[in-house]
Design a protein around this nucleic acid. Structure first.
Length: 221
DNA sequence: CGCCAGGGCCTCA
DNA sequence: TGAGGCCATGGC
């Protein structure tokens, strides 16, 4: 069995750097993050994307984010000022739009009351706990926010990661979120840049190998 | 037409 | 605590 560091090297070699969090920079509509230092508006956009992409393809999320930006709703105050019905209409393409509109309201309120500058000073574990107590934020969304918006070395586990690990014989199919996360974090250097790329590479690789059955992974098996 | 997409909440044992 | 139902649009 290949170890997790080896798998990373294979994926990086195959697909190259992913430079997440992804944006539609070619459309020149919202800010580009590539190689830039994150500011708070960028961090918030990442949080919004993390909510919208729950069980949803990024393509559909991208449309919703563009619509939010066009309507000047892609900010904490924008989300707070607009009616939930307006939010629902704007993010419709992302699916589950009623739930997600409500969730955006809740997280906007949270980040209004708790600025990034304050939250950044908290211990990662403490911040994770706080995020998990927000309605609409589960383990994957919390960890995506920690890793991509706060740049904390937290490994994000998603359905693809579980599928891939099970297929490769790295873990059993029913291993729970925290256990499989530990598996990655114990075997890798705690480096936010590494975790950022690794998770993105797993998603990219899985779109090729783990989207439709029967799964077939010539690269890693 | 059916399946899937970068999940999470609620309910009910 | 864990399995199952539910949420919903768009691509293929």
């Amino acid at each position: 069995m290949k170890d997790l560091n080896k798998i990373y090297k294979l994926l990086l070699n195959q697909y190259g750097k992913q430079n997440w969090w992804p944006t539609t920079l070619e459309k020149d509509i919202h800010p580009t993050y590539h190689g830039k230092k994150l500011d708070d508006s960028m961090r918030f956009e990442i949080v919004v994307g993390a909510i919208l992409t729950q069980n949803t393809s990024w393509k559909n999320v991208e449309k919703a984010i563009i619509e939010l930006n066009k309507n000047k709703i892609l900010t904490i105050n924008g989300i707070l000022k607009n009616k939930v019905q307006k939010l629902e209409k704007t993010i419709k393409s992302a699916g589950y739009y009623r739930q997600k509109a409500e969730r955006l309201k809740i997280i906007a309120k949270f980040f209004k009351e708790n600025p990034f500058s304050k939250l950044k000073k908290l211990q990662t574990e403490k911040l994770r706990e706080i995020l998990l107590n927000i309605k609409g934020i589960g383990p994957e969304t919390a960890d995506s926010i920690l890793l991509y918006a706060f740049e904390k070395p937290v490994f994000v586990i998603d359905a693809y990661t579980k599928r891939m690990c099970h297929y490769l014989g790295i873990c059993s199919a029913d291993l729970d979120y925290n256990e499989i996360q530990k598996l990655f974090m114990k075997n890798l250097k705690p480096d936010a840049k590494l975790f950022n790329e690794y998770h993105a590479l797993i998603v990219e690789h899985s779109k090729h190998c783990y989207s439709k059955k029967p799964y077939c992974d010539e690269l890693l098996k």
